[in-house]
Simulated assay, not measured.
Amino acid sequence: MNAPFPAGDAGSITRVAGIEVGHFTDTRRPTGCTVVMAREGAVAGVDVRGAAPGTRETDLLHPSNLVDKVHAIMLAGGSAWGLEAATGAVRWLEERGVGLDVAVGRLPIVPAAVLFDLLVGDMRIRPDAAAGYAACAAASSADPTEGNVGAGAGAVVGKVFGIQHAMKGGVGTASVTVDGVTVGALIACNALGDVIDPDTAQVMAGARTDDGRGLRDTRRALLRGQPPQPLLAGTNTTIGVVATDAILTKVQAHRLAIAAHDGLARSINPVHTMSDGDTLFSLGTGRAGKSLGMMVLATMAAEATACATVRAVQAARSVTTAEGLYLPAMADLRG
């Protein structure tokens, strides 16, 4: 059998010149937020595929709209409440003179997306503006920490047959470099479906069997006629950012975000469901000074996204909440 995807150094989104990442992880319950920052501004796009998204300032990223550069992307837990974390990022950036020149000051542009982690611990604890501010203060160009951190602290995967049979998700990151151009991705994976190995189609983490010791394989279980547990819409969602140092137009950035969803489709099954708000942003810093063309960049974006999604469950660790919910990690089942 092939080795689990990926092998060796998977890279990270901060290998893209001009990109910084910072996490805030709440110590009171598993939740938090993650900022992907481009202080000098980056051409941006977005593609929303899930039917239950929670987002902020995504309309301005449409290719026909005016603003073509953003200064950060905020990813957060806490469902719609977590969108407040972006306000903290705006304040942090404004204090440092970063933002769009609006004559009377500089306005930081910070789109955001959230995932639902309110079933993991006390739902009254959610990322807020202070959390977003702290994530920015922690940002650096070092390889980001993965697993139970930031927006992925309360992430869970494989909930089709109930959260009691699910497993721990998290944050993962990866990058691909071709001919001096890098494309990287950072994914907070809180998918309703299973995470699968893109190379072998083997289930890596997701819905567990009734005894909790094995993997059910959600796709095959559904096709056998096993009924899913009734689902509350929007209680899942995978969110993330794909970034490149290639030169991009706003239209190309939009297409790159679309292509990145191919990576989710290769690494999550089922994906883009009525109960997920799957949203991916794209950033182009232009620091490489060239472009490889959209065929190559799109291929790299999908690859980095799939790899980062896998990394999210590989790096995750088990959680037991005060309420008694146990969420094992991939490493626990393999062990």
Rank of each mutant, 00 (worst) to 15 (best):
125 I>M: 13
177 T>M: 07
187 I>Y: 02
161 F>E: 00
184 G>S: 14
195 V>D: 01
156 V>D: 00
146 E>F: 07
191 A>M: 10
167 M>V: 11
170 G>K: 00
130 A>G: 13
147 G>W: 04
183 V>R: 00
147 G>E: 03
123 M>T: 15
180 G>M: 13
190 N>Q: 12
137 A>M: 13
164 Q>D: 15
164 Q>S: 15
138 A>S: 05
155 A>W: 05
133 Y>A: 05
137 A>I: 10
148 N>V: 06
171 V>L: 14
155 A>T: 07
172 G>H: 00
175 S>T: 11
193 G>N: 04
192 L>G: 05
180 G>V: 14
197 D>N: 12
165 H>G: 08
131 A>E: 05
179 D>A: 15
156 V>H: 01
180 G>T: 12
188 A>W: 01
163 I>Q: 07
123 M>S: 15
163 I>K: 06
166 A>P: 02
192 L>K: 05
139 A>M: 00
166 A>K: 03
131 A>N: 04
143 D>K: 10
182 T>S: 08
194 D>Y: 03
162 G>A: 07
129 A>M: 10
162 G>C: 09
127 P>C: 09
185 A>F: 01
143 D>M: 14
131 A>Q: 03
148 N>W: 09
164 Q>A: 15
178 V>F: 12
197 D>K: 02
168 K>T: 01
144 P>W: 09
188 A>Q: 04
178 V>E: 14
182 T>F: 02
180 G>I: 07
181 V>L: 09
159 K>T: 09
123 M>C: 15
150 G>M: 06
139 A>D: 02
184 G>C: 11
158 G>R: 01
134 A>Q: 10
142 A>E: 15
127 P>W: 08
141 S>P: 03
197 D>A: 08
195 V>E: 03
171 V>T: 05
137 A>S: 14
158 G>A: 10
172 G>N: 04
154 G>V: 01
159 K>Q: 11
168 K>I: 02
158 G>Y: 06
160 V>Y: 10
185 A>R: 08
124 R>G: 13
186 L>M: 14
172 G>D: 07
183 V>N: 00
196 I>T: 11
148 N>D: 12
183 V>G: 02
180 G>P: 12
129 A>C: 12
188 A>T: 10
134 A>N: 02
189 C>E: 11
135 A>H: 01
162 G>E: 11
192 L>H: 07
184 G>P: 05
